[in-house]
Amino acid sequence: MMVTFLRQNVIYNKQRDCMKKNSFYLICGCIALALLVIFWYSVEVHIRFLAEISFIVAIGGIYLLRKKVTDFVEDERTARITEKAALRTFQVFWVIFCAFSIGAVMQILYVPTFPREHLEIHAPELLGPRMMGYFQLALLCLMIFLYVGFRIYYARKYGEWETDEE
């Protein structure tokens, strides 16, 4: 009697730890909605840490949930598509980021302009926090677009949407 109970309990716990792909997507949607509400609230009350911490918690939660999904089949081809898209995104991103950073460093160090006879000493023009925010937003959007673009490109290259005569 006790053994049967324990066995049933173990089976129940195993089933509880598993999750289907659709349930995972549903929960992800709910988390995204909750994040949207939290972001809106954090803007309203001017507490930016609330948005930042909630974002980290949400990503951590999604990562933990992802490990419980049983019907995700991720093989070496899909891993390669992800890997190549991420690498190419990073390669483009660091060039753009470095180009901007070089400009910013030149401003900070105050590199004089040419010709030298019109040299005027003035304070370097740095980006304000608002402009910096816009710049980071633009970089974030760029990264997302680049990643999606490269992912589509490599998915097509490695036969993701190929049709079969079978």
Binding site: D75, R77, G159, E162, D164
Partner: peptide, 9 residues
């Protein structure tokens, strides 16, 4: 243990 798309590719 792979996807059908992988075999097709």
């Amino acid at each position: 243990g792979v996807t059908r798309q992988t075999i097709l590719a």
